[in-house]
Design a protein around this nucleic acid. Structure first.
Lengths: 193, 193
DNA sequence: TAAGCCATGTAATTGGTTACATGATTTT
DNA sequence: AAAATCATGTAACCAATTACATGGCTTA
């Protein structure tokens, strides 16, 4: 009996996966079937706050399969080879464990725009203004782009999962906030209450 | 005469610098004197949207000096060696050129928090809620932290440069927007107009 | 006298992208 | 028949961090 418990513990022992692997696992959980589809899903949904390159996806899928978290099968389309995957029970467990893991969730923003704005005092008024305008326009574009995804996200929110809409709303909200701050600065209104 | 113009052009030819070097240059422009002070200045002011490790600073300073954009002098404190730098005319020109350069200013956000939230549909309601709460608290902390810098930024804004206050205001606005979206979601209020 | 800060420098490692290589299918 | 898209795989490269190494000064 003790032996079986031990074995169980060994099997449940979470394999150490890197973050790209969790992204891939998450996308398989969401229904992306092939490496190619995973890449597309990333571009369509999370590219705003996460990216992953094709070169990371295929090795990740293999690692996940070795760990028994996804099950792959060869499913060529005509003569075009293709490997499809589905998540296993162990896989969705591992995903949930990762999601709940009590670890620091650092916020890593790396923005050349803000960086340039920070140093904009080195410019004359006109150039500084040009820079600010560029920043404002950039965020306006982001808002417009994200708004185009809105109807799709709303539909899936209603019929199944509201979390894609939630992250979309965050993207829109914080770019709107940036636009607002730019406008205040342009007009010489106070920036902070 | 033509020769001198050529020479002038050659001297003005912008050396290709990597981004860490521009950050270092900017900090020297702002008055940071040693590598150590630059690191501190980064941590105090721009760490919210940019980081730079110590290992990048010293090589950058050397590259900047070779390019004639900063002027370094050995200025030990007692027996503790120390090299201080000040920006040259060519240096502030190069900074301005970089700031005005008409290039894409990509917004690169890499946030595990949003990533986890995106996949939170894999969790039961209670765990998903815990995750959301953690995200909300994280942004609340950021807002509180940034607010503590506010008075300093306001003072320097009044007496010289308002741009540090501007980027600070963006950080605050940004996280306030995230808190707001979290609150809406928690309370089941509509996320988007 | 030990801990913490000031100060610099660099080797090893990480985490990631770009580019290359291959080939089938679909669309224009 | 060319261009675009589907599909996978990997080597080379790059940017950045971590960790290590060294040493003086200041404060508790």
């Amino acid at each position: 009996m003790t032996d079986r418990l031990w074995q169980g513990a060994a099997m449940a022992k979470p394999v150490e996966l890197d973050r790209p692997a969790y992204v891939v696992l998450g996308m398989v959980w969401l229904g992306a079937r092939s490496g190619y589809e995973i890449k597309q899903a990333v571009e369509m949904s999370i590219r705003f706050f996460w990216t992953i390159s094709q070169a990371q996806i295929y090795p990740s899928l293999k690692a996940l399969e070795r760990a028994g978290l996804v099950k792959g099968r060869s499913e060529p389309l005509g003569k075009r080879r293709r490997r499809t995957y589905e998540i296993t029970a162990a896989g969705s467990d591992a995903l949930r464990v990762w999601l709940c893991r009590d670890e620091a969730i650092p916020f890593e923003l790396r923005d050349v725009g803000l960086l340039k704005l920070f140093f904009a005092g080195a410019l004359d008024a006109s150039d500084a203004r040009t820079l600010l305008t560029a920043m404002k326009r950039r965020s306006e574009h982001y808002v417009a782009n994200l708004r185009t995804i809105e109807p799709v996200a709303k539909r899936t929110a209603l019929k199944s999962d509201p979390h894609a809409l939630l992250t979309l709303a965050m993207g829109i909200a914080f770019h709107q906030a940036m636009v607002e701050v730019c406008a205040r600065f342009e007009q010489g209104r106070p920036l902070l209450g």
